[in-house]
Design a protein around this nucleic acid. Structure first.
Lengths: 153, 153
DNA sequence: TATTTAGTTCTGTAAATTATAAACTAATGA
DNA sequence: TCATTAGTTTATAATTTACAGAACTAAATA
């Protein structure tokens, strides 16, 4: 699989983004490749060769991405290869995960508020305030998504 | 500084949360301690001793947190020590950073859309859709924050 | 002037992470 | 039945990271 410089560059940037959100470098590059590639589906070997990563690293990356639901694959009769692709339904999940993360933070902050013996009430008020906002956001978000869905017919 | 089991536990959990968003373990624990501690402000030595981390790790962690605006410190005349504390204005910044991250993702996705030669238009439509939603969210968020501010007098 | 305080900086290293290469497996095909 | 394909597993090498420990600095105090 030949890639343009632009494509390679973008794959690296997407790779770094995903590394920063906790993926292994090779895993993050595979995500990048599957996103950027013109072909909708790629085989094990195409991925391994295009990214110059070993078979084991490729195997490991693909299995991790399969397990986390980031990719899936199709097969064709009379062809033993699997054809891997990004699960596009995954956008919403990706977004939801970010929101869950925020909600995880909020749960921690609620526990902080409980544990603190408020020798610094000013601070506690601000903390409570922020917790309130996160709760509000969580509540409003589905509504916002609905509104957007309607506006886009 | 004596800490209850509950406090220690919470510090670890907050630590793990921040580790997962890219902080070093020791840095993440310092954040946790400053959040959970009853005292609003802690000195270098209190932090180092309470968390059992070396002076170098403490120095490194505090400077990193100072540089990123997560903490600041006060001083008192005739006292050479610095008294470190969480910047509570930081809640909003923390949130904004999460949102910026999302907007960073969106910029990458926009570039993906440009680079793709749409041999898989179905996929591209979904991608475009998601990009649109993220744009919408970014635009609506300030409004939402304003609405919340009003509802909370 | 010597000592203490409040940190900082520098080196070494243990542990964790990430990836490789080579051996292996299970299915298909010649 | 022997070879090939499509991957997986295992053992290990290379890199990175995260930190401790010790030496250091600069200001304040004795």
């Amino acid at each position: 699989m030949a890639l343009s410089d632009k494509q390679r560059e973008l794959i690296e940037e997407i790779g770094i983004y995903h590394e920063n959100s906790g993926f292994q470098p090779a895993v993050a590059r595979v995500m990048g490749l599957l996103l950027v590639s013109d072909k909708p589906e790629l085989t094990f070997d195409e991925i391994s060769e295009t990214l110059s990563i070993s078979k084991s690293a490729t195997s490991n990356a693909l299995n991790m991405l399969l397990n986390t639901g980031h990719i899936d694959y199709t097969t064709f009769s009379g062809d033993r290869k699997r054809y891997f692709r990004i699960r596009s339904s995954n956008w919403r999940e990706m977004f939801n995960k970010k929101m869950e993360d925020l909600s995880g933070l909020n749960n921690l902050l609620k526990r902080v508020l409980e544990v603190r013996k408020r020798e610094n009430p000013d601070y506690d008020i601000k903390l409570k305030d922020f917790i309130g906002f996160l709760d509000y956001l969580k509540q409003q978000l589905p509504e916002l998504m609905e509104k957007w869905r309607k506006e886009n017919e």
